[in-house]
Nucleic acid binder design. Structure first.
Lengths: 191, 191
DNA sequence: GGCGAGGTATACAGATCAGTATACTTGTGA
DNA sequence: TCACAAGTATACTGATCTGTATACCTCGCC
């Protein structure tokens, strides 16, 4: 909404520091003083740029969502086969997981911010619904049967893989295999 | 370890209040003063019983894990068919979700407590590994092919369903259906 | 009887939190 | 040139946090 305000160099540094700290240490556990110090900026500047900690949290999630969607869309573009495109978000998940071993930032944010009116809830919900819609569109293009059901199943697989990431389990490869199997069993030329 | 200490009536009230507050509002956001007030107890008593907030958090997760495992095992016992037993944890998930709409307490706890040496990490990891082992044992008993692979897939499905719970999506029924389909396709009398 | 465990009541220490106040500096563009 | 936007520097407010200190109460049990 008010994100049309141009971002200054200090604002970008603040946002970068907030992304790092909020994701690795948790939102409630990180204070604005620490973010200001890490970005080489005074607290006054932080408040001039973002208004409040809640707004900074919303900006953090929005920016993270933007980067993640770009990665997913790039992974889809990198595939040529329509069936491979459906499971391309799992390719992106492998890349993404390499530098993000603390699970899903949006699920984690919801865990710390129980108030449903907090902007984080809408951002997180939008992200998941966006991925579900993407799965459905790709499945439809690939000619899969029941693309809606398939999309929900792929979303659950995706989220389950992310959720188990901080645990001492390797679920990524198995989930990607299962996702491909589900898509192939629903694709028209595999039955 | 030191959980052999007998629990007093005040201790039980404290633990009950902590369970409710930690789960619904988040661990970092809830102070010990609030827990003491809610359980009708002095803060001094809380510290006499649990030593520190971190120990109380560990006790909260341990108790929650105990109740959840009992529910899962009861759901398995309620089924007679060996194939139905494999997907029984998804029956339990339906019951459990009715009163727990804030996702998985263990994933949420890891989101707020990034330090891997915190007891919450071991408790959460143990819970997931326990469920995975249970899936594998039930699948083996049911005569499923590749019970290890199947168990990991069922675990990811289970966690994905829990993780998407706070979102405006209904994933439970679809996941349970997929779980049953996976088990049936691996069971000996269905191929 | 008395003693000790468990609990109450209240106050406090020391740290940290989000957010504000005041005064100064610096670069840029009209 | 000069006005303005962006940022620096530092101090502060009031609230809240975990954890402790001190003094008292009240049972049950040896």
């Amino acid at each position: 909404m008010e994100n049309t305000r141009p971002m200054t160099a200090a604002g970008r540094r603040i946002l970068a520091a907030a992304e790092e700290l909020f994701y690795t240490r948790g939102i409630t556990a990180v204070g604005v003083d620490l973010i200001a110090e890490r970005s080489g900026v005074t607290k006054r500047t932080l408040y001039n740029r973002f208004g409040s900690k809640d707004h900074l949290v919303a900006a953090y999630l929005t920016e993270r969502d933007r980067r993640w969607r770009a990665l997913v869309l790039a992974a889809v573009d990198a595939r040529t086969d329509p069936v491979d495109k459906v499971t391309a978000p799992f390719d992106a998940l492998r890349t993404w997981s390499a530098g993000n071993t603390r699970g899903c930032a949006f699920i984690n944010a919801l865990a710390e911010l129980p108030d449903p009116s907090h902007p984080a809830h809408r951002i997180a919900a939008d992200q998941k619904l966006w991925l579900r819609t993407l799965f459905e569109e790709l499945a439809t293009t690939a000619g899969c049967r029941e693309p809606t059901t398939l999309a929900t199943r792929l979303l659950v697989l995706h989220e389950g893989t992310l959720a188990t990431q901080p645990l001492p389990l390797d679920t990524l490869s198995g989930s990607a295999d299962l996702a491909r199997a589900l898509v192939r069993s629903g694709a028209p030329d595999t039955r």
